[in-house]
Amino acid sequence: MSDAGVVRLLVFRVGNLVCAAEAERVREILPRLATTRIPGTPPLVAGLVNVRGTLVTVVEGWRALRQPEPPAANGTQSGTTVLLEVGGGRKVLGFTVDEVVDLLAADAAALDRRPALPGIDPTLVRAVGRRAGQLFVVLDTDALLTPILSS
């Protein structure tokens, strides 16, 4: 947050849901990478990917947000992986989205109002914004991703 009171948000689409995450938490935006399954983990964990020599666990966005599976293009899955900092930047997790839509600035005071919204677990919603006449959900990425890491 460089300017007081203003936060920058990365807006992306997962299934039918337009969501946003604080841009400050976004480490990197990457194409979808080849994953290695981690036996024993729930289906929403896509697996491990190699980000320039560092291993990152990737979470399947559509499963985490209970959205329909994105259609496969040319037999391979399309989409984008957003690397998000979790727990104050101590860990990084990948989160797959269908597409990245926009980067925009929003009023910080509007965050953390935690309104209820149909179709999404209220504990994951920090705020609701509006962009080009469309509603989007500002996700509580910590609440969404921290439980996935065991410790």
Partner: peptide, 14 residues
């Protein structure tokens, strides 16, 4: 050998 943040449920054999 590299470490990784094992997600919940990871079998304890890695």
């Amino acid at each position: 050998v590299k470490g990784f943040d094992a997600p919940q449920g990871t079998l304890p054999v890695f």
